[in-house]
Design a protein around this nucleic acid. Structure first.
Lengths: 345, 345
DNA sequence: GTGAAAGCGCTAACAA
DNA sequence: TTGTTAGCGCTTTCAC
């Protein structure tokens, strides 16, 4: 079934069929109806390879993820569902417009990152690329994509430069989380930050700092840093709890580090939220399956991915570009890991 | 960068470059080296769209999943990582061979399933399709793929017919699980089966039945059925526990139903494994994050997906086809939800 | 062992 | 508004 069959069946030229397929103007309604009837009847669907060859779009969008971290998450099976949420939001939005989303893994730290990316682009010739952290802040990738003239969306990066930028308002989310704890009566609220490699690590710290300062209880000693791993979260928690005036609540920058803190408390025979309130970031399945279920900042990954696809596709239709960055609000999911602090003696 | 540039740079014809790319014979080693040097130098990567247009492969493999169930899993965020494991095994294996894996969602119950599938095939012209349950047992899909002459692998189906078939040895796994409980001293072992729509539901029951019969403790009253949902698992568990001679252990056919049973026990103030031993199926993240962590049958989804890709790609190279079905062993992961039964008074 | 030709299914630029 | 022509980058004939 090719465009030729349709043209023959409808008694028109190839070009007219092509125009109908691509919703181009300058086709009489009756012609259009006739062509569409033939398309329907013959079950014709254009080959994207041929469309691509003809100089049109490839209807392919690449979702670029960090290879090492993604594979580690898949192997660990700890419930990290970043990729699933990307697919939920991105793939479904793609499907609405006849696009496909292809997940591609690329090494961030590799020196041949350019080769890898160029190879993927040359092979697939995607119409757009979605960058996730830490790729979204990688100047090499950004420059390369820009030079190639490929539209791309950067999720979780505010770095200046070309491409659509989308963030989940981490700063505000961190402030909300902190204010929630302050409202419960906490004054010593520790914060376990993520690695500096991720821009959002800084935003989250900023939000916490702002809320603490506003409440007049700021103390940089309450800030620790991890690298998103369980082990690093544990180490950070140990440090915070060893302070002369330890926190009564801790916010950790992802679920793994929060869980590490929870495990540590359990080991020490202490209770959450009795002895320590805990707020997590990301709200992957692990947060709701923990005991107690964790109060957590929900990352609207599916929404952001969906918006990213819209931006990439919408651009083609000549739609106006919204102001950057596009901010998708993150919410605080209250669960059972937060409570008023125990009264000190 | 096209094949032309390479040909010009190497001082050979297009055809020779093409031969080198496709590892065809009849190219002198020195020619080959020269061409490869040019390819390397220019960073040339063939366009898969053009390759496809030229009558060659598309280097695309479709992973067909059930739309409704997959989207529900993504939205629920309960840690079901079937798609991730498919990607882990399938996508990485694809990457090794220059292929891409595209996840495609299709309605099983839809009457326009043929239209959906044909559209995807016409658009992408994939070199192969991987079918997962319940698609893998769907005669309409199987017939259609066969008629289209597309290679396909069916995971989790033993139904006769064309295509490669792969199973995870559910029957043996169920037997192992049952024998584990028997060895612990259990005699009343309940089984919550999955819906008949999934062939593997039956295999699991068969394994349990065989082990129970071999031990001389078979009792069909101990068999209940659910539909893989939490609610159905709960209902099934309630039924089993209400028996005159209730089970001291229950095996449920997936993690959701096992967790429902665990929740039920907790509600009733009973302990696992103290009052009831529990064995789960699938071993998604939820199983290891439960309290207590669940002894579970691990589904080697990544391995199976990897094998499926190998079969599809390998076939092209003229490799001999292994005997069907390809059986990938499933193991039993021992955790803390199983123990010897409490002694009856 | 190598090269020249034709054609895959589609779209862009042009002409009518 | 419609049809015609050329060409996208590659692989397949088929000659040499």
């Amino acid at each position: 079934m090719t465009i030729k069959h349709v043209a023959a069946d409808a008694g028109v030229s190839l070009q007219t069929v092509s125009r109908v397929i691509n919703k181009e103007p300058n086709v009489r309604p009756e012609m259009m109806a006739r062509v569409q009837a033939s398309i329907q009847k013959l079950g014709y669907v254009p080959s994207i390879a041929a469309q691509r060859m003809g100089g049109s779009r490839s209807y392919l969008i690449l979702a670029l993820n960090d290879r090492e971290r993604t594979i580690a998450d898949w192997r660990n099976r700890q419930g990290t569902d970043w990729v699933d949420q990307m697919l939920l939001g991105g793939m479904l939005k793609c499907a609405e417009h006849g696009y496909r989303l292809i997940v591609e893994l690329v090494d961030t730290h590799s020196d041949h990152i350019e080769r890898e990316l160029l190879a993927a682009i040359a092979a697939l010739q995607p119409d757009g690329v979605i960058l996730t952290p830490p790729h979204s802040g990688n100047p090499i990738i950004i420059r390369l994509l820009d030079a190639q003239g490929i539209r791309f969306a950067r999720i979780g990066s505010l770095q200046e430069g070309p491409g659509f930028t989308l963030i989940m308002d981490d700063e505000r989310a961190a402030r909300l989380a902190t204010e929630h704890l302050l409202a419960l009566g906490h004054r010593r609220i520790g914060f376990i930050a993520g690695p500096a490699e991720y821009e959002l690590s800084g935003w989250r710290v900023t939000g916490w700092r702002a809320a603490m300062a506003a409440a007049g209880v700021a103390d940089e000693a309450l800030l620790a840093t991890g690298d998103f791993s369980h082990a690093s979260g544990r180490a950070a928690a140990i440090g915070l709890l060893a302070l002369p005036d330890p926190p009564t609540a801790i916010i950790a920058s992802n679920d793994q580090m929060t869980l590490a803190t929870l495990d540590l408390m359990r080991e020490r025979g202490l209770s959450v939220p009795g002895d320590l309130s805990l707020v997590s970031f990301d709200d992957t399945p692990i947060a709701r399956l923990a005991h107690p279920p964790l109060t957590a900042v929900m990352q609207p990954i599916a929404d952001v991915a969906s918006r990213a696809v819209e931006l990439i596709i919408g651009d083609y239709a000549g739609e106006p570009t919204p102001a950057m960055p596009v901010v998708v609000p993150a919410g605080l999911q209250l669960r059972q890991s937060t409570a008023a602090p125990a009264t000190r003696t």
